[in-house]
C-alpha cells in the first residue's frame, strides 16, 4: 500500500506542467480556441477538428476545438461572436447564423462576425423512392398541384434547412407552400430517409450527400438538386435552374472571428484556411465525409452570408416561422 502511494506522488509531480516563458512573437503566440456550435461527433465537429489539426500544424500553436452546443446553434455562435476580438477565438459558423435570429431564438446576427473563409456547401436535393411514380421533377410538381395536401415531405425538424429549401422550391415553382405537408424529423435526415424507404413519406429534401448511400444502392432516386450547377458526385441529376425554377439552397460552413478582430490576423487566418481547403488532404477528408467543397474568401463570404440572411427571411415568412417583432 505504501509503495502505491509513493508511485502516486511521483506520478503527480511528473505531470505538473512545466512553466515556460514564451517569447514575444507574431500571431499566434498562444493556443487558439476553435468554437464548434454543434455536438462532438457530428459533421460540423469533424470538420472543425480537421481544420484545427491542420491550423495547428501550420502555425505551430495548438488549435483546440471546444464544443459549445445548445439553443439550436445559438449558444456556440454567441460564444464565438462575443469572445475578445484578438484572434484567439475562432468559430466554425454554419448556415443557422442566417436563420435563427429570424426565428426569435437569439438576437445574434451575421453582423457580429468578421469572416475568414467559407469551406463547404451542400445543396439540397429532391429524393424519392426508387419505385416512385414520378420520373422527373416536373411530374412530381404537377402531381402536387393536382393533389394539394396529399404528399408528405420530410428531412429535418420544422424550420430546419431542408424544410426551408422545400418552401423556397415550391414558392419559386409557383405552388402554394402548404400544398404538401412537412413531417418534422427530429433526428434529421437519417430518420427521414428511413421513413422514405419504408414508404411512409413521399419526398425527402435533404442534401444529396446525405441521401447518397441510398441513391447509389438503388433504393432511392434523386429528381433534382437545388444548386446553381450540377454537383460532381451526381452528374446526372439536373439542377432546379435547368428545370426553369429559379431557386438554390443548401447548408454551408465556414470560419468566422469576432467583429473587430485586427485585419492582419484575419487575413493571416484566411490565407491559412484557404490553403488548407485547397489541399489534397482536405479534398480526401471532405469526400469520405460526403461534404461538398466550396471556397469563398473573406469579403466574398461576407457578401454571401448577407444575401443568405435576406433570402431566408422571405422563406421563413412563407413557412410561418418568422418571429414577428
Amino acid at each position: 500500500m505504501r509503495r502505491l502511494l509513493w508511485i502516486a506522488v511521483l506520478v503527480a509531480f511528473a505531470f505538473i506542467p512545466v512553466l515556460s516563458a514564451s517569447a514575444w512573437a507574431a500571431y499566434p503566440e498562444k493556443p487558439v480556441t476553435v468554437i464548434c456550435p454543434w455536438g462532438a461527433g457530428g459533421g460540423t465537429d469533424r470538420l472543425a477538428r480537421f481544420l484545427a489539426d491542420e491550423l495547428s500544424k501550420k502555425f505551430g500553436q495548438p488549435f483546440t476545438v471546444v464544443n459549445k452546443t445548445g439553443g439550436a446553434g445559438a449558444v456556440g455562435h454567441a460564444a464565438g461572436a462575443y469572445a475578445p476580438p484578438d484572434g484567439y477565438t475562432i468559430t466554425i459558423v454554419t448556415l443557422e447564423l442566417a436563420t435563427m435570429h429570424w426565428m426569435g431564438l437569439t438576437d445574434l446576427t451575421y453582423e457580429a462576425f468578421d469572416y475568414v473563409a467559407q469551406v463547404n456547401e451542400d445543396p439540397a436535393g429532391v429524393t424519392v423512392r426508387a419505385d416512385a411514380p414520378w420520373k422527373t421533377l416536373k411530374e412530381l410538381l404537377d402531381d402536387i398541384k393536382a393533389n394539394p395536401g396529399k404528399y408528405l415531405f420530410s428531412g429535418v425538424a420544422a424550420g430546419g434547412i431542408w424544410d426551408l429549401a422545400r418552401i423556397g422550391m415550391l414558392h419559386a415553382a409557383g405552388i402554394p407552400v402548404d400544398a404538401v405537408k412537412w413531417i418534422p424529423s427530429t433526428t434529421g435526415a437519417a430518420q427521414a430517409l428511413t421513413e422514405l424507404l419504408g414508404g411512409h413519406i413521399h419526398v425527402v429534401t435533404c442534401s444529396l450527400a446525405e441521401a447518397g448511400p441510398y441513391i447509389k444502392s438503388g433504393q432511392a432516386r434523386a429528381l433534382a438538386v437545388m444548386a446553381d450547377e450540377r454537383i460532381p458526385a451526381f452528374p446526372d441529376v439536373p439542377t432546379l435552374k435547368e428545370l426553369g425554377i429559379n431557386w438554390s439552397a443548401g447548408t454551408w460552413r465556414g470560419v468566422g472571428v469576432p467583429k473587430g478582430t485586427p485585419e492582419e490576423i484575419r487575413k493571416k487566418l484566411e490565407d491559412a484556411v484557404v490553403e488548407i481547403a485547397n489541399s489534397e488532404a482536405f479534398k480526401k477528408f471532405m469526400e469520405t465525409n460526403g461534404f461538398g467543397i466550396k471556397i469563398r474568401r473573406g469579403e466574398e463570404f461576407r457578401k454571401f452570408v448577407e444575401e443568405q440572411d435576406k433570402a431566408w427571411k422571405t422563406v421563413l415568412e412563407l413557412g410561418g416561422y418568422l418571429k414577428k417583432k
Binding site: 502516486a8 506520478v11 503527480a12 505531470f15 480556441t33
Partner: peptide, 22 residues
C-alpha cells in the same frame, strides 16, 4: 492530500492529455 493530488492528476491526464478536452 495525497489521494486528491493523484486523483486530480489522473483526471487531468485522462481528459486533457488523452482526450484533448480543454
Amino acid at each position: 492530500l495525497i489521494y486528491s493530488l493523484a486523483l486530480a492528476v489522473f483526471i487531468y491526464w485522462i481528459f486533457r492529455g488523452v482526450f484533448k478536452l480543454p
